[in-house]
């Protein structure tokens, strides 16, 4: 598994063409791999390295810097509970503890059925709705313990599939292609 599919290689080429330097496409390509497989394994990194003329070590160095890139398999639902200051003041840790109890895992573990991975995260920029969390980077605010239980049930039952796609799918809209491709990008004067 885990090399990019032919279709994703095509997408990768389009992404690379948006940037003046191909290495800039590294984060977007890692997302592409994560979208494909839900996480990023070694062969995906090697393949991306090939596409960008980077060594796998260079890809790994960048990939491992960012918390959103998962280099281990995660559940279909990544539950990210914020405990940073605004949430802390409004019950973020209590929510996290409740989540551990409800899911039967501790932070950074995945439920045995592969449905949920629980993580504690830094401020999600949704502080007016503290305590808040994300599932696959989709926001849920003012989450009470009951809300959480319902949320888990709904997710498990697939009732939220519309709002919460599988882990790895960050952006279901395609950003527009750029009008000035790399090939005719202005260099030097006269941009």
């Amino acid at each position: 598994m885990a090399r990019l599919t032919q279709e994703n290689v095509e997408r990768a080429r389009e992404i690379i063409s948006r940037y003046p330097a191909s290495r800039s496409a590294l984060l977007p390509l890692l997302y592409l791999a994560q979208e494909q497989d839900g996480w990023i394994d070694d062969s995906a990194m090697e393949h991306i390295g090939d596409l960008l003329d980077l060594t796998p070590a260079q890809v790994l160095g960048t990939c491992s810097f960012y918390t959103m890139f998962k280099r281990q398999p995660v559940g279909r639902h990544l539950v990210s509970v914020c405990t940073n200051i605004a949430c802390l003041l409004n019950g973020g840790y209590e929510l996290l503890e409740h989540a551990e109890a409800r899911l039967g895992v501790v932070v950074d573990e995945t439920t045995p059925d592969g449905e949920f991975t629980l993580e504690e995260v830094e401020c999600l920029a949704d502080c007016d709705r503290a305590p808040c969390l994300q599932v696959n980077y989709r926001f849920f605010g003012n989450v009470t313990h009951d809300d959480f239980d319902r949320l888990v049930d709904d997710l498990r039952a697939g009732r939220l599939a519309e709002t919460v796609p599988a882990h790895g799918v960050l952006n279901r809209e395609q950003p527009p292609p750029v009008s000035v491709r790399r090939a005719d990008a202005p260099h030097g004067a006269g941009d």
Partner: peptide, 19 residues
């Protein structure tokens, strides 16, 4: 030959090769 790189970040940063 960029075959070694910093991996992870903050005080977990370590030098590593790709597996």
């Amino acid at each position: 030959d960029p075959l070694i790189s910093f991996v992870d970040r903050g005080d977990h940063t370590q030098v590593l090769t790709f597996p």
